[in-house]
């Protein structure tokens, strides 16, 4: 098992294994996204109160869920980078941040578009929306902090620490609707209490959440492969790769 972890640290090995995973992960992502979108947008009944506008949840909820989970991926990669000084962890942290930032922005924008017809306003400073905005700034902050240093070993340490401090925000986002009075509704799906979404609407949502996880993994792996090539362009394995093609 440990040899597997040591191999993870080897750029040529990781590059080729990530390529092989992406070969089936990318088509799977597209298939899941297409199925989920068509099912959710065309073949589910409108909501009894919101009508058709509720369908934005098929993008909003998966984007938000994966943005939260992705933050832990980034923070754990940052921690590994701080403790073991693994180059691959640094690359993983850098690869995760822009994907997470984009997902958070998607959740914020779709939330605003949904909020206008439902609540009557684009934005409100309640606990859920504000903490989600902070998550966006944290992702942007990790990217900015990394880019701000010339010396990349200091850069990854600073970004890693910011990432770790930001983990405090994740349970706050998750519990914000229960701890405080907010405009955002409480969670419809909980780990313990089942779902307040009728099952015919729930299944496409679960499919879309799976699709977004798969999309996240594909994007991160693609990003990591690109930065590996950029970092190691002088190495013999990259030259061999170029000659092959």
């Amino acid at each position: 098992m440990w040899t597997f972890f040591h191999k993870l640290g080897s750029p040529p090995w990781f590059y080729s294994i990530a390529g092989r995973i992406l070969q089936w992960l990318l088509p799977l992502t597209l298939l899941l996204l297409a199925t989920g979108c068509i099912w959710g947008l065309l073949f589910t009944a409108p909501d009894f109160r919101q009508g058709n506008s509720y369908r934005i949840m098929y993008v909003h909820v998966p984007a938000a869920v994966v943005a939260l989970a992705g933050y832990y991926v980034m923070a754990i990669a940052g921690a590994i980078c701080l403790i073991w000084k693994m180059k691959m962890a640094e690359i993983a942290m850098r690869a995760t941040a822009p994907v997470g930032a984009f997902l958070t922005l998607t959740a914020l924008v779709t939330g605003a578009i949904w909020g206008k017809p439902t609540w009557g306003t684009w934005w409100v400073w309640d606990a859920r929306t504000t903490s989600m905005l902070i998550l966006f700034f944290l992702y942007i902050g990790v990217i900015a902090l990394y880019e701000a240093y010339e010396d990349k070993s200091i850069a990854s340490r600073a970004a890693g620490i910011l990432g770790l401090v930001g983990t405090v925000n994740i349970p706050i986002i998750y519990k914000s609707v229960d701890w405080w009075y907010s405009l955002h509704q409480p969670a419809s799906i909980t780990f313990t209490g089942g779902s307040a979404i009728e099952s015919s609407m729930l299944y496409p949502l679960l499919l879309m959440i799976t699709a977004f996880y798969s999309l996240f993994a594909s994007c991160v792996l693609c990003n990591m492969r690109v930065s590996l090539i950029k970092r190691e362009w002088r190495a013999s394995w990259v030259r061999a790769l170029v000659k092959e093609d």
Partner: peptide
């Protein structure tokens, strides 16, 4: 000066809501 609607966490098709007399 401003009134916002707070949506709850329940989502269901109209037929289901009718059968639950919630419409």
């Amino acid at each position: 000066s401003e009134v916002l609607a707070k949506h709850d966490e329940n989502y269901m098709p109209p037929e289901v809501a009718d059968s639950l007399k919630l419409s």
